[in-house]
Amino acid sequence: MRLMCLNGWGGKLHDLLIPYLKVSDPDVLCLQEVIHTPTADQAWLTYWHDGVELPQRANFFSEVCRALPDHVAVFCPAARGDLWDAERRYDSQWGLATFVRRSIPIIGQKQGFVHGEFSADGYGNHPRPRSAHAVRLYDFGKGHSVVIAHMHGLRDVDGKHDTEARLIQAQRLADLVQSVAGQGDGVIVCGDFNVLPESRTFDILRAIGLADLVTTRGFAGTRTSHYRKSGRYADYMLVNAAVNVAFFDVVREPEVSDHCPLVLEFE
């Protein structure tokens, strides 16, 4: 089975990302920073907040659905806020999404918040609500199930250091995973965690039997040249001992976001 995890950056590099997803065609795609604006006909809208102006692909979720027509798609919104077309405002949903090939049965799943609750009345200031999603899949060929979970971790304007909120977030993620996993299941947890490699987040995840593939295999970060700040780590992928890793890579080319795709092939 082939898994890809990626922060899609709101579809900012849409013209490169969509063809890449079509060609890659992973069995499971865990995608963070997904935009869903059902009332918008425009291809692009703009996000404005505290001097930040960022183009957003208005219906990024729908476009990825069309790029992966053989997949079941689940969108998990964290908040609804404003996007703009000049002076016209649109209510837009923001969150993460999971795409699973239709031939792979989803035998369990859970969506929950690792920080806050759903915000229907605007994105607000950081730290904003953050959701996570876990699916339990059955592999007919191998005759066993695997749980795949992902989250988009808290952003803190002061950096990626540990905070009480981030440690609570990690524990809630661990609890969500354990609530979906069955005895003996393979478990994979991934996402844009927004923490440093030395974070105590990994102690919490290690306590439920998970080990990170990014830092233990010598990858020097998960950011592309589009990310201009210091600190090259944000994205991680952890597995338990029941996951037989056949291949893992932090993909450097093509650059389809300010984050690198993480690709895992496992048995």
Rank of each mutant, 00 (worst) to 15 (best):
A40I: 12
V28Y: 06
N194L: 05
H49M: 11
N125D: 14
S24C: 15
D85G: 09
R155Y: 14
F140M: 12
V64P: 07
R200S: 09
G184E: 09
I104G: 04
A86N: 12
D156S: 12
Q111A: 08
P261M: 00
R217A: 08
R128Y: 05
Y233S: 09
A79H: 10
G186F: 03
A211S: 13
P129E: 07
V147L: 00
S62F: 08
I148N: 02
S179Q: 08
L238A: 08
K142G: 15
I168K: 10
P197M: 03
F61P: 01
A134S: 13
A43M: 07
G209P: 10
Y20Q: 05
V100D: 02
F140E: 15
R206E: 13
E267F: 13
H133Q: 07
K110E: 02
S199F: 08
D25T: 14
S179K: 09
Q183A: 14
H115K: 05
G11Y: 01
G51F: 05
R89D: 14
D50W: 05
T98P: 03
N7R: 12
S103P: 03
T215K: 02
H126A: 15
E267Y: 12
L13I: 07
G186D: 11
Y47R: 11
G51E: 05
F113E: 00
V243H: 04
D212W: 08
D185V: 03
A242Y: 12
P254A: 01
F202C: 02
V28L: 04
V23S: 15
V239Q: 09
V72L: 12
A86L: 13
S257D: 07
P55I: 02
G209V: 08
